[in-house]
Amino acid sequence: MENNIKISLKNIDLWYKDFQALKDVNLNIRSHEVTAFIGPSGCGKSTLLKSLNRMNDLIEGCKITGEFLLDGEDIYGGLDVNMLRKRVGMVFQKPNPFPMSIYDNVAYGPRTHGIKSKSALDEIVEKSLRDAAIWDETKDRLKKSALSLSGGQQQRLCIARALSVEPEVLLMDEPTSALDPISTGKIEDLVTQLKGDYTIVIVTHNMQQATRISDRTAFFLLGEVVEYGATEELFSRPQDQRTENYITGRFG
């Protein structure tokens, strides 16, 4: 196996009861790269993303087979789910700050993992907010409710919250679909900065966003990965006619 592969997926099948949502997915996600998942609604891209930190576990009737390896370790094997989610963080489509202060939102994860020291928490909160490019906007109002922030700020706060437990992988499910172009630009800038320290997988419906920020793109259709390759290549000369049809808006 190439040594820069962070997540290796082999022969993944996923069913929601009788409906097969993922069909024989094989993908290698590389370290310190941004990997984009694109495809029409219902094609399985978010399902796969959620499977990467076992968020489908609680869904009744969900059955998953195949091999999910994180640094060679089986995600669905002996790995503790809480430890997995510490290593693989998630940012959702809609900003979802907890109804508590900005500080407590970011400190929530570290506290759950046993950090109690005020100075250690202060340090983590500042670093996470800085890394999420929202420190300057929040440093004077850390005790204020996170719900008082704008949508774009809330999303960056959620990214800070995800970063606070020092994950290795950051999963982002359409993180800018509810944001205006300026907030979207900030998140995109942030993603390109963060890939130096993290491996990022992003689901997006915005083709231009995928071309701007991702190194590799996987195109999903009806639960299958139709094409996976360098983003520049996939958007300039796709190999599969179905990819071409989708990205040029001929269907989907």
């Binding site: 083709m207 231009q208 071309t211 958007f235 300039s236 000369r237 796709p238 990819t243 071409e244 990205i247 040029t248």
Partner: peptide, 9 residues
């Protein structure tokens, strides 16, 4: 239109 792939070419 911000075309891609063949459209862009």
């Amino acid at each position: 239109e911000q075309p891609v792939a063949r459209d862009f070419r």
